Amino acid sequence: MKAIYTIKEIKERLLHIKDETDPFLIKVRKDERKGVQTLIRSWEKKREKEREAIKEFEQMKQYEQSLWEQGYQWIGGVDEVGRGPLAGPVVASCVILPKNFYLPGLTDSKKLSKEKREMFYDMIKGNATAVGVGICSAAEIDQFNIYEATKIAMQRAIEETKVNVDYLLLDAINLPISTPQTPLIKGDSKSISIAASSVIAKVTRDRYMEGLGEKYPEYGFENHMGYGTSEHLTALHTHGVVEQEHRQSFSPVKAVVSSS
């Protein structure tokens, strides 16, 4: 093929092509320049990832689809973030999505980059039928234990949606409430509603911990989000416990408290 377009022009036009039958794509496939063939391969890989994301999204929508077909309207996906850290709250979210919600690539928040989580957070907040967030503080975790505090945070998140949730999809937990529910092992990779709630909970908690990082810069909360990293443990032993933020019932924190 005689070169009609520059490689830069081809690169720009490929950004907007989604269909393999596009006349321009068919034409440039015949361009034997190495740079053009590299661009074509890159486009093909990107399209394959997009197809996989669409397929995964449709698979993850099956639980919601089945429940909609059974007549349920307000299906809440529930997940939490922050069971394991030594500091900060446990945060839960309940998200109810409309039937036409479409966000390929949505999955367990831990599998997403920070940039993508932030982007998805805005898209979920802007398109969800309802979003609720529930928080249980470090002091409440010490009072009730982390498992019970997690359930309390989840119930608060459900109540915060301000709607009459008629079915719950939860990430591997049962709640002591009358609402029909299904716990799913690794639910944030199996249900779009749970995945959406995991994104909301993760971004909410991360922002909280980043705020603590600004308030207590010596602890580096914005780096470890309260988990027991070497940086955090060193700061804990050097500067002591942050009242109301460190979980004093957790062993590493308890040891510092008892030795002070």
Results as ranks from 00 to 15, higher is better:
Gln70Cys: 01
Ala255Pro: 00
Pro104Cys: 08
Thr179Leu: 04
Gly211Leu: 07
Met225Lys: 15
Trp74Lys: 02
Thr179Lys: 05
Leu67Asn: 01
Asp142Gln: 09
Ile96Ala: 06
Val131Trp: 06
Ile177Gln: 06
Lys18Glu: 14
Tyr63Met: 01
Ala139Gly: 00
Tyr5Cys: 02
Tyr102Asp: 00
Lys8Arg: 12
Lys110Gln: 07
Leu112Met: 11
Val131Gln: 05
Gly71Tyr: 02
Thr182Asp: 01
His237Glu: 15
Gln62Met: 08
Ser198Cys: 12
Glu118Gln: 13
Thr182Tyr: 00
Glu44Ser: 07
Ser198Leu: 11
Ala3Phe: 01
Met123Arg: 15
Glu160Phe: 03
Cys136Ser: 15
Pro89Leu: 10
Ile75Arg: 00
Glu80Gly: 00
Cys136Met: 14
Asp31Trp: 03
Glu48Cys: 01
Ile40Gln: 09
Tyr227Lys: 08
Glu214Tyr: 09
Cys94Gly: 02
Ser137Asp: 06
Leu67Phe: 03
Lys18Phe: 12
Asp31His: 06
Ile7Val: 14
Trp74Gln: 00
Leu170Ile: 11
Ala130Gly: 04
Asp122Asn: 08
Gly82Ile: 01
Gly226Ser: 09
Gly220Trp: 13
Val256Lys: 02
Ser197Phe: 12
Lys46Ala: 11
Ile141Cys: 07
Thr6Met: 05
Pro23Ile: 04
Ala87Leu: 03
Ile146Lys: 12
Leu175Gly: 12
Asp31Tyr: 05
Asp108Gly: 07
Tyr167Thr: 01
Ala153Gln: 12
Ile158Ala: 07
Gln73Ser: 03
Lys215Met: 14
His246Gly: 13
Phe57Tyr: 13
Ile152Val: 13
Glu32Thr: 12
Ala3Tyr: 01
Val81Gly: 00
